[in-house]
Design a protein around this nucleic acid. Structure first.
Lengths: 329, 329
DNA sequence: CTGTTAGCGCGTTCAA
DNA sequence: TTGAACGCGCTAACAG
């Protein structure tokens, strides 16, 4: 391991001078800068990020907190997109992203998690899909010890930024399009889990649409579960004109129920996972660009870490159908 | 941030004494050990892992190198299982796992990657699904600068351990079971990508079976692509009795081709991804426990980092069918 | 503009 | 058995 010391010796300057060119300080003459850069290149020197962090107390480490506990591996795609987006952007911004699954911090209280992160020199966190009932993470956020970005939860404070699409509008959009295509009046809406922030937002979008289009809407909690949605559809879909679901997985469950019942109703989903392409019937759905969302989340946490204050960031969405021919490769 | 200094003061001992109890040194009297541990608990002290690493030069950081570049997000499940298994075990062994996607090191040569990892104080790496053609990673492995575990590649040296299931036997097993169920003679085998180590191993298993059962075997490269497998099936399946595929994704492609052609042939796959449960027809497949494989990989890298030498580790597999009712929740 | 110096938090000799 | 002192590789005042 070649260290800054050797570079300094090689270039015939002081250690601190090397450090300064490394960190882009202004007061360095072109001549010495060139000398130092030459030495760096010759020796193939790469600064030791650990030592640098320890010394500067600027760690630039951010924790990505993901909760893939749900057995439903069909949505692992979402988490992978989150990870890819975050890691790519982190690399670009010269941050270190640490992947944390909630199983790893289960059973800890907010203080313990705080200390745990501190000891790992983590100064920023991104929480994906926070639950309303997660008192521990809530406390962590409100404690404001870390720069924090929450994806899909409308929490904003001095050190917390919220990033997501406009779920209210998106649910409105996709349902409206599907309803207009088939001129439906009686709607079965299968909502998400009560403890999810987006559940409420999406439901609001539906309510607005129902009012506006004078629809008869019947709502049931599907808990984001394919099986539950399936059972709800089996029970209630018959005398409805359309089934609107708050997630693709539930849409698939509902669609399979309809097929089993041998009746047809338009169904629409939410998320845009590729699994939709494997289901026989095509459905409208909201495509969320999870890669981009996560990428923005990292940008925002970087922004917070450099002292700016929290804000709300809304990203665009679109309505799509997933076709088998498009998703296979 | 409470530091070792405060603990020392609080306990009325020297910093070095605290350090010694922290690291389980022998020569500490019970009395002082108790004092120190008391202070640690009272102050909720957690050692700063960064500083500890810098000082000891033992970093215990391992890079998980994953290559999810393929668009096929249907197999993200596999990567998530790899990650979950690795991170859980890393936590257990007190290692820090760093998630690296190949996109992040694309375009670097072996030396650059080495320095990049060194600068990040990474001393162990786990490579998932190494390609035969990946000269850069090959060089990294053979350079033996890092403790290295390769998953699904038969490379072993002083500092390299290989972890995988017995692909040869697994392919033999699943094909044999499927063939025996239906008493087939003419086999279409859709193999993987030429540059994959497992492709060769699985093919060997098929060849052994073909010899043993006196089968007529017709082999085509499916490149692990659903679409390619589909096309191969469209072209060649008609006058065969069975289609054996080297991956689930290809099995799904082949099965969909058969459905389009409106003919039935038994198909079997390899991997055990849940997507199989969404396909109408059930197929035999090899279930690989990716979580466990990855978990073992971390154990092995830990073993290597503590000085032991490389070896080959073979993990068990099983034959299963994925049923829709089992995978939805 | 450059070099000297003092830490960052901790591990590890070596005396005492 | 304990503690003072040094150093890991680097950054950040401060002095020159």
């Amino acid at each position: 391991m070649v260290s800054i010391k050797e570079v300094a010796k090689h270039a015939g300057v002081a250690i601190s001078t090397v450090s300064k060119v490394l960190n882009g300080y202004p007061n360095i003459s072109e001549k010495t800068r060139a000398k130092v850069e030459g030495a760096i290149r010759e020796l193939n020197y790469i600064p030791n990020s650990i030592a640098s962090a320890l010394s500067s107390k600027q760690f630039g480490r951010v924790a990505l907190i993901l909760d893939p506990k749900r057995q439903t591996q069909a949505i692992d795609q979402i988490f992978m997109q989150y990870l890819l987006g975050a890691l790519d952007k982190a690399k670009e911004l010269n941050l270190e992203a640490v992947t944390i699954f909630t199983s790893m911090i289960a059973g800890m209280n907010a203080e313990e998690i705080t200390r745990h992160f501190m000891s790992q020199s983590i100064s920023g966190i991104i929480i994906y899909g926070l639950s309303k009932e997660d008192k521990v993470l809530q406390k962590l956020i409100h404690g404001q010890e870390f720069s924090c970005v929450v994806v899909d939860a409308p929490i904003v404070n001095e050190r917390t930024t919220s990033v997501s699409i406009d779920h209210e509008q998106a649910q409105y959009d996709v349902a409206k399009k599907t309803i207009m295509d088939d001129n439906c009046k009686r709607v079965l809406y299968i909502a998400g889990r009560k403890d999810g922030y987006v559940t409420q937002q999406r439901l609001s979008g539906m309510k607005r649409l129902a009012q506006e289009m004078d629809l008869a809407m019947f709502v049931r909690q599907g808990d984001f579960s394919e099986r539950t949605a399936r059972n709800i559809a089996l029970k209630y879909a018959k005398n409805k004109d359309i089934v609107v679901c708050a997630s693709d997985l539930m849409a698939i469950g509902a669609m399979n129920a309809l097929i089993d019942m041998d009746i047809f109703r338009p169904v629409c989903g939410f998320d845009g996972i590729t699994l939709m392409g494997y289901v026989g019937k095509q459905m409208n759905t909201i495509r969320q660009d999870f890669y981009s969302i996560s990428s923005h989340a990292v940008e925002e946490v970087d922004r917070l870490m450099s002292g700016e204050s929290g804000r709300e960031v809304l990203l665009p969405h679109s309505i799509v159908k997933m076709y088998y021919k498009d998703i296979i490769c």
